[in-house]
């Protein structure tokens, strides 16, 4: 075994040990208390139920759908005669313009939407927190040099903020070529500035807290103070924002698909693209626009409800 590997293992063991020492029992932490308040908030429960159903559909739905979402010719469709069959016992949501089962496409589309929302938000969260955390720690603890680093990072963020979100996303897709991955990157990229500024501000506010001075007075190192003291006290607003961003990410991803910048394969079931297809047939089959629109609205609502409830639960001013 190499020296490095041995060191790594020793470190992991130490971490596991620490976690074991501190994880069990414990008392009621800030998070547990927030969770308890969350459980008593009806909005949070409604949001959680919506999201629960959404996630369930996204995960297991595609295995249970009655028809393949890409199978065409399930019935008689004539766009020239304005005939697209509506809901029936066999096809619950009716057929679409290529005679595919609309219900199956909605269910499979849920997975796509969930994937885009989560991956895009995770992308933005990761890079936003990286930049914001670095800037916040540098500004709060790094002295003069830290402040210059913070300045450089934040001016970069300002540049991103100067561009309208959707326009920025469209430019990124144009640059990288339309695909599902590109949509996720573009939507995530747009949310980077929000996360970065939020975490930075939150960390700077904590940097002058008394417990930070107290830890400093005991000789605790700056990296340790940033990671184990300031960061845990600063993440609450970022988590709330992440939940809310999931909602906007879904809407933005649908928007990009709607503009024809999503997955270029017309066969894939994707709510935003379905909306685009529906637009051309809106006059005689408005229900085709109704399903994906309602899907997008309800999931976005679920995330927003939960996010707002989380904000309330974690807000120290609203705590009893």
């Amino acid at each position: 075994m190499t020296q490095l590997a041995r060191k790594k293992i020793a470190k992991l063991e130490r971490l596991a040990e620490l976690a074991a020492v501190h994880a069990n029992e414990g008392g009621e932490s800030l998070w547990r208390e927030a969770f308890r308040r969350l459980r008593h908030n009806p909005a949070a429960i409604v949001g959680a139920v919506i999201l629960g159903i959404f996630v369930l559909v996204g995960f297991v739905g595609p295995f249970l759908v009655p028809f393949s979402p890409t199978q065409t010719g399930l019935g008689f469709v004539s766009e020239a005669q304005n005939i697209i069959p509506g809901p029936s016992a066999q096809h619950w949501f009716g057929l679409d313009h290529q005679a595919r089962d609309e219900f199956s496409r909605m269910v499979v589309g849920a997975r796509q939407t969930l994937l885009v929302g989560v991956v895009a938000t995770a992308f933005g969260l990761f890079f936003g927190c990286l930049i914001g955390g670095l800037a916040g720690a540098a500004y709060g603890l790094g002295g003069k040099r830290g402040r210059s680093l913070d300045n450089v990072l934040m001016r970069f963020i300002d540049m991103l903020l100067a561009m309208p979100g959707l326009l920025l996303a469209v430019s990124i897709v144009a640059l990288l070529g339309p695909s599902l991955t590109t949509v996720m990157i573009a939507v995530g990229f747009v949310s980077i500035p929000t996360f970065a500024r939020l975490l930075r501000g939150s960390m700077i506010a904590q940097a002058n807290a008394e417990y930070v001075v107290a830890a400093t007075s005991l000789g605790v190192g700056r990296r340790k103070i940033a990671l184990s003291h300031i960061l845990p006290n600063s993440v609450a607003p970022v988590l709330v924002q992440a939940t809310l961003t999931l909602a906007t990410a879904i809407i933005e991803a649908a928007g990009l698909s709607f503009l024809g910048l999503g997955n270029p394969d017309p066969a894939t079931a994707e709510w935003g693209a379905m909306l685009t297809d529906a637009l051309a047939r809106f006059e005689f089959a408005p229900r085709l626009a109704f399903y994906p629109a309602v899907g997008i609205i309800i999931t976005a609502l679920g995330f927003t409800l939960l996010g707002e409830a989380m904000r309330e639960a974690l807000d120290p001013k609203l705590r009893k």
Binding site: R14, E17, S29, A209, Y211, V213, A215, K224, S228, H229
Partner: peptide
């Protein structure tokens, strides 16, 4: 306000021991 509200007491005490006396774990 001089204690970190989201970190258990034990972690905060052991942190000092780790920093200056090189003590870890058990």
């Amino acid at each position: 306000s001089s204690l970190n509200p989201v970190v258990p007491i034990g972690v905060q005490v052991t942190e000092v021991l780790a920093r200056h006396r090189g003590m870890t774990g058990e």
